[in-house]
Amino acid sequence: MRAYLPDYSFHRAKTLTEAFSQLEAGAKPFAGGTDIMVLLDAGALPPDNYFDILAIKELQGIRSTKKALSLGALTTYSEIRNHKLIQSNFPILCASAREVGAIAIQNRGTIGGNIANSSPAADLPPGLLVYEAQINLISKRGLRTLDYTKFHLGYKKNELQKDELIHSITLKPEFQKHHHFWRKVGSRRSQAISKTMIAALAKVNRKRIEDIRIALGSVAPTAVRCLEVETFLKGKILSPSTILEAKKILSRDLHPIDDIRSTGKYRLIVSQNMLEEFLCGIG
């Protein structure tokens, strides 16, 4: 490990009240640590004060009512992939949780941590975007709710204020009649960080697209909902030329870059091809 541990402080907050006072003192929350520990090991995590929120009951667990499903910020990837209601109503979330790191990471990593870290390569955000999730943030000031689409502001930037924690994610199970499509392209079949990934939903009635939602990850500073393509495709009957046009429009929503994992060009072309794969599958 390339870090000198005595330069870091680490506390455990057992209640939200304790967590709020930690935030007030400028400490940083730790919700599983699967991103933070990588940085710490590499000596790339600046010495600071951290507090563990894993023991806070209000932020744990999945709660369901008839109208909605609420995923506490501390819900792990394993809990997501094993949950019956998520499997039947939000299969993309299960599929994407299954492709995060390895089992040990899935047992440890949390949806709140994944979202708060705001990496464009995070696996859950594209699914949350197409399911039009809502995100609930909590602070001493109370609870506030945002459309998840509004949460991410840029590379590693989000709506979370200094005194706030992610409380939960709310999902409405209204996609039983939709096609659900997920594909992640990583550098290998497991233990891979994505190069590009697509989450997509579509409801087709007599070959005509009634509803369509498309989101991609790893191809822009944040996961992106591809509204231009959606608008273009809504109401259309799919044909080879429509698909070709959709692929062209898609490139306007994406801003892929060259980095250590792939090239911008590869990300763009493969994203277009995955859109085509999705559209061919619903037509």
Binding site: V38, A42, S187, R188, R189, S190, Q191, A192, I193, I260, R261
Partner: peptide, 23 residues
């Protein structure tokens, strides 16, 4: 191996891609 100025830039098992059992 991704070289940057003569140095291996991807010196981690998360970005130097060795096949897993699934590959």
């Amino acid at each position: 191996v991704i070289w940057k100025e003569g140095r291996m830039a991807n010196n981690k098992m998360s970005n130097y891609i060795m096949p897993t059992t699934l590959d």
